[in-house]
């Protein structure tokens, strides 16, 4: 076959890959933070008793979770301008990934909210807290600690979804890799290094999340 590995072209462009990775991480962090706020609000709506809150929240989560993210990315970039909403490619991608994260995080948070005993809300009411105070200072913090393990895998999967930004030419890691691949023809080397960068970042995210989990765990 006679294919000899030669990483020279990849190392020459390594800065480009790294800046792509930085952009990927940036997109992920911003979108997941916005998504976490959306997810928290939607999760409270999903677990509330009012139909007016449950129905729209359920509809949002069901629709987003059953759509391919690539369709959403292309829709936001190519079709929204027809509705008069013109966003540049990074903004439109962040918009999509935030809404997408919101739906997935809402499901994670919902499961966490269901595991909080009812007695805590009652205790909060007994000492005179308002509903908002109970949610923000009793339920949300406890729920966050409970969901950390499943939060970790959701965050990793959302980080991987930043690769879709390559489809609208956002110069993140996958886009950079594809460019190097096409320009240098060092096909195997390029994808090996790219994949390694993604895998390493995912492991790093998992390690950070495990650290947070240990720090926040109840002493026993």
């Amino acid at each position: 076959m006679g294919y000899t590995l030669n990483f020279a072209a990849v190392w020459r462009n390594f800065d480009f890959l790294l800046s792509g990775l930085a952009l990927s991480l940036g997109l992920a962090v911003i979108s997941i933070l916005i998504g976490a706020v959306i997810g928290l609000v939607v999760a409270f709506a999903l677990t509330s008793k009012s139909r007016f809150a449950v129905v729209p929240a359920r509809a949002y989560v069901t629709v987003i979770r059953n759509l391919p993210i690539l369709v959403l990315v292309l829709f936001a970039f190519f079709a929204l301008p027809q509705m008069g909403l013109r966003l540049d490619k990074i903004k439109s991608f962040v918009l999509v990934l935030s809404l997408y994260s919101g739906a997935y995080l809402a499901e994670v948070f919902r499961a966490g909210l269901l595991s909080i005993p009812r007695g805590l809300t009652e205790a909060g009411l007994a000492i005179g807290l308002t509903g908002m105070q109970i949610r923000s200072s009793i339920i949300a913090p406890l729920m966050l600690r409970n969901v950390l393990p499943s939060l970790s895998s959701t965050i990793i999967s959302l980080f991987k979804d930043t690769s879709l930004a390559a489809a609208i030419a956002v110069p993140e890691l996958t886009f950079a890799a594809r460019k190097i691949n096409v320009e240098s023809f060092r096909v195997i080397e390029t994808w090996m290094v790219t994949s390694a960068l993604y895998v390493a970042t995912c492991f790093l995210i998992a390690a950070v999340m495990r650290f947070v989990e240990r720090r926040l765990a109840l002493p026993r």
């Binding site: 076959m1 294919y3 990793i156 991987k160 979804d161 930043t162 690769s163 879709l164 390559a166 489809a167 996958t174 890799a177 594809r178 691949n181 023809f185 096909v187 195997i188 994808w191 790219t194 994949s195 993604y198 895998v199 390493a200 970042t201 995912c202 492991f203």
Partner: peptide, 20 residues
């Protein structure tokens, strides 16, 4: 599991061609 599916798809497409 640590690699995005898009990267797998692109790698599979380009690498399979490169190795003949």
């Amino acid at each position: 599991r640590g690699t995005p599916v898009l990267v797998l798809v692109l790698a599979s497409y380009y690498v399979s061609a490169a190795v003949g």
